[in-house]
């Protein structure tokens, strides 16, 4: 095993390399596609904070993603707020919703936690279906792209891309800082052995709730940004399929790894892009990926690479 310090430094070096690549990526790749990947990567990173570091499987994260998308869409389009205020409003509402949903869901463990979050998300879905401000089946369309901070024009996709990249980097660093803090160490202790963490005197429920709220808030940030990028907030964003999609991204990339969710989001979004013409088969293929990953490589892409790397360095030592 490597020392924790070197792992931390290596992670940051990889992140710096990824950011450098991301800075020049719009020269080669369509910026709207890149923005979609970044939004979903942030979504998956926030989801991974729960499943990977606290061991809580939330099957209802669409409620934060889609809820924040509706809020930011509404305040920007109807109330005429600026984009940065729209994203802040979406994030704040997702955090509040996370506080409410989290305090209910952490009352049950394991498999029940997943079912409770799924059911609560379905409740939010029906609320969004019926509430007048979400415009039902149409969703909130044509959300304007106003200048950010009143200065920078966002109507150009490339300019917007760098804003989204900044938001993504902020979210990544918040999560990275969290998992390497003393708070994050307690979270991992809860994941490994909850009764022991309790017996050591930690108020496990408070730690879980705080992690849940943080995850919900960052998910909301991703959803709010996505709504402004695509100028659309719709029922797709709050539906249970969206909750399943983020589980799939994280699982494919590697649960509990730092970069897995980013890779997973990239893989799944790319796949959806190429398979868009196949209609219903996308669902079948996504299901098949679930089955293959669960049966054959549960560690995900990044997890398997890490395991391979560790085996190799152990053999050499």
């Amino acid at each position: 095993m490597m020392k924790a310090g070197t792992t931390k430094n290596r992670d940051l070096q990889i992140f710096a390399g990824l950011m450098a690549l991301a800075l020049i990526a719009p020269l080669a790749i369509y910026p709207v596609f890149l923005m979609k990947v970044l939004c979903f990567a942030l979504f998956a990173l926030a989801f991974n904070l729960l499943i990977g570091y606290v061991g809580l499987l939330s099957f209802g994260h669409a409620m934060f993603f889609g809820g924040a998308a509706y809020i930011s869409g509404h305040v920007v389009k109807v109330w005429g707020w600026s984009p940065e205020m729209g994203i802040i409003a979406g994030t704040a509402c997702a955090a509040l919703l996370g506080l409410a949903a989290g305090s209910l869901a952490i009352r049950r463990q394991g498999i029940y936690f997943a079912m409770v979050t799924l059911a609560l998300a379905q409740m939010v879905f029906f609320f969004c279906l019926q509430a007048p401000f979400t415009k039902g089946e149409d969703g909130i369309q044509a959300i304007p792209r106003r200048p950010v901070l009143g200065l920078f024009d966002l109507s150009d996709d490339r300019a917007f891309y760098y804003l989204v990249l900044g938001i993504f980097a902020f979210g990544f660093l918040v999560i990275w800082r969290t998992i390497h803090s003393p708070f994050g160490q307690v979270l991992k202790a809860i994941r490994e052995n909850e009764p022991r963490a309790i017996s050591l005197g930690y108020r496990v429920d408070q730690y879980k709730l705080l992690a849940f709220v943080l995850s919900a808030a960052l998910t909301g940030m991703a959803g709010a940004t996505k709504a402004l990028v695509f100028q659309l907030a719709s029922l797709t964003d709050v539906a249970w399929q969206m909750s399943g999609e983020v589980v799939l991204m994280t699982l494919v990339g590697g649960m509990g790894t730092v970069f897995g969710p980013i890779i997973g989001a990239g893989v799944i979004i790319t796949m959806q892009n190429y398979l868009a013409g196949f209609g219903e088969w996308v669902l079948v293929i996504q299901g098949a990926i679930f089955v293959v990953v669960v049966m054959a490589f549960r560690k995900g892409i990044v997890g398997e690479i890490q395991a391979w790397w560790q085996r190799r360095s152990r053999n050499q030592a």
Binding site: L57, F59, G110, I111, A114, G244, V247, L251, G279, E280, W281, V282, L283, V284, I285, Q286, G287, A288, I289, F290, V291, V294, M295, R298
Partner: peptide, 20 residues
């Protein structure tokens, strides 16, 4: 949770095939 994820994937596949 792996049982849940596996059966979720199977459910997506079955539903997708019938929708197709």
């Amino acid at each position: 949770l792996y049982g849940l994820l596996l059966t979720f994937g199977l459910a997506l596949m079955i539903e997708g095939v019938f929708r197709k």
